[in-house]
Design a protein around this nucleic acid. Structure first.
Lengths: 347, 347
DNA sequence: AACGACACTGTAAGCGTTTACACAAAAATG
DNA sequence: CATTTTTGTGTAAACGCTTACAGTGTCGTT
């Protein structure tokens, strides 16, 4: 019950294997009559070309590998979608691998992908991602998204997380918040650390000498929920009021945060204003709609793939121009929705 | 700058290509000394085995193809995650293809995948999916998820959408709703039609002779938002009150629906009760938390892959036992949250 | 009528692996 | 010691495909 091979098709159509190949691949130097016979034989035998054999002889797989840290939530679904749409437009396949808790798993995954793809699209936000560089098959075109992989970067597209954190704080201050807090992402995550750093520096600048509480989350709704609970509990215990503005390091946590605040009867934005990060589709539909820093997640994926394709073409054509420093940096843009729209902004 | 081949490694380590192969693959009939030299040479040359060549000679790609209709929203991200986790546990790669608006694109995609995978995991909820069966390389193990592909089904895992629709209605009636409405998925979607059918039959049974409005959405938040607006507008115009209970065909639309209702000042659940479908992670964090029919989306993906692996092993071992009828049907389970928890349930 | 140009077609080499088989050397057995 | 067995290694044949090259036959041209 093995699949039919090109040889079988050729025999069935009574032509040589070369003609069969030409007919199937739509080359123009084939007689119409032959093409017809071959195509007929192929469909009769349900012939499917063997991708491995093809990529072996063509030295090209038409597949690109996508390495993601995890596939949880709308952020990643948007990334994949962006990549998928762009890849499909170019006739490329996607070998996807996610669910890496840490670098070691990512390393394993990249190893396994090595010989099967023409290029690699990597998102590895771990603070110690430099190690990845060591194992990357360096003859493979590579583009990193929001990662921090040292030297090798033939191309990269990253987010100005620090700047985003600063913008969030400035906005909350603009809205009249006198006290701030932050729910951060995991400490092992480079992006999370940058956002936090942006928050802390901007907060210190705007409100010198004030202590700002930071709750350490992990980018899940659940942890955002817990973060808000933690602030509520701390305030209840110490008798201090809730922070007037909270910068939450991503939208999913902000959604969880929103739920906890509502359950506690805190009015958003008037008692507590909230700003998230990413602008995932759901943000608009949160209650209240979430102010956030838009990074255009879909485009992140799409542009990442496009960058990679460019790199691959260069690689294929000019031979070996590393052409380093191809770094795109995306500046998050504030999307002002109700979760931070306070009644009485300053004059 | 082409990658090193096994031959290069063999030469560098001064052994035959066969020994090199054995050493790299960790076979036990290799002298320690040789293994050491080979491994050293391999890492020095940054050798990466060529997947195509390997799969050619082994007649196995260790890759399974995943075909999805679209990759938008948490539903698909959860499916992919389930598949990915299960695949990773078995050392399988995932060739993912999404973004198919219709069968024709799906057919193209399946064609392209054909020769590169050991099995196919297909989700094709289009009402006319039978056509897909025609092009499926039938010697390939195949499992369908929530699809409707006729005969070929070597294995399938599907959702009792009709039953889910019925449960939703029964629950709303239980909660004392006297008038019902439905926001459906697109008419081209088989699952959407089943949910709608469940709604209509159960509604007719519970409230005989009453007309129930149905708004046709497309499974996006946006369309759920529009659906609610449409109901609001219709009621404003006709002077009739809003339906007391709305069954929304998936959670994403329900989230959009919630926003529209809140904007209009309608209290959920007391003025309008809402029940969604899927129980995507966000449902719990909606405002108010969304009652919904849980299908265990993550598990859908995970079990789908497991079913496929079983089919592949059978295929590999026993030769050719189609072993049809391997159909798992998942019954959605009601998750009762606040969006449908009305003050005065019946005695 | 002879010739080159052209349009097709077939033969065969190779792409990078794995692995059956043959073989040599070393170890165990009588 | 002369064997058999074990252990490690190399040779070479596939795997299914593309494509350079070498035909073959058909024309149009001189």
């Amino acid at each position: 019950m093995k699949g039919a091979t090109l040889k079988d098709v050729a025999r069935e159509a009574d032509v040589s294997i070369a003609s069969a190949s030409r007919a199937i691949n739509g080359l123009d130097n084939v007689a119409e009559e032959v093409r017809r016979r071959v195509l007929e034989a192929a469909s009769k035998l349900r012939y499917v070309p063997h991708g491995g054999a093809r990529s072996l002889v063509m030295a090209r797989t038409n597949t690109i590998g996508v390495l993601l840290p995890d596939i949880y939530g709308e952020f990643f679904s948007e990334i994949i979608r962006g990549v998928d749409v762009a890849a499909r437009a170019r006739g490329l396949h996607l070998l996807v691998s996610g669910s890496h808790g840490d670098i070691n798993e990512a390393v394993t995954a990249v190893r396994a992908m090595g010989g099967r793809v023409d290029g690699l699209l990597v998102m590895s936000p771990f603070v110690d991602s430099q190690d990845l560089a060591a194992v990357l098959p360096l003859n493979l075109p590579l583009v990193t998204i929001a990662s921090r992989i040292g030297k090798v970067e033939q191309g990269s597209i990253s987010i100005d997380n620090f700047g985003g954190g600063v913008k969030a704080v400035e906005h909350l201050i603009d809205q009249g918040c006198k006290t701030l807090a932050h729910i951060s992402g995991p400490p092992s995550n480079f992006e999370a650390q940058e956002r936090r750093r942006g928050f802390l520096e901007a907060a210190e600048k705007a409100l010198p000498g004030v202590e700002h509480s930071v709750f350490e989350g992990d980018f899940t709704e659940e942890s955002g929920y817990r973060g808000a609970k933690a602030f509520l509990a701390a305030c209840a215990q110490s008798g201090e009021p809730m922070p007037e503005g909270i910068f939450v390091a991503n939208d999913m946590m902000a959604v969880g945060c929103l739920l906890a605040l509502r359950e506690a009867g805190k009015a958003v934005p008037d008692e507590v204003a909230l700003v998230g990060f990413d602008d995932i589709p759901i943000a608009r539909f949160a209650s209240p709609p979430l102010s956030t820093l838009r990074v255009g997640v879909f485009d992140l994926g799409r542009r990442g793939l496009e960058l990679l394709v460019d790199a691959m073409e260069r690689d294929h054509a000019e031979g070996e121009l590393p052409e380093s420093g191809e770094g795109v940096i995306v500046s998050p843009e504030l999307v002002f929705r109700d979760s931070s729209r306070r009644r009485a902004p300053p004059a």
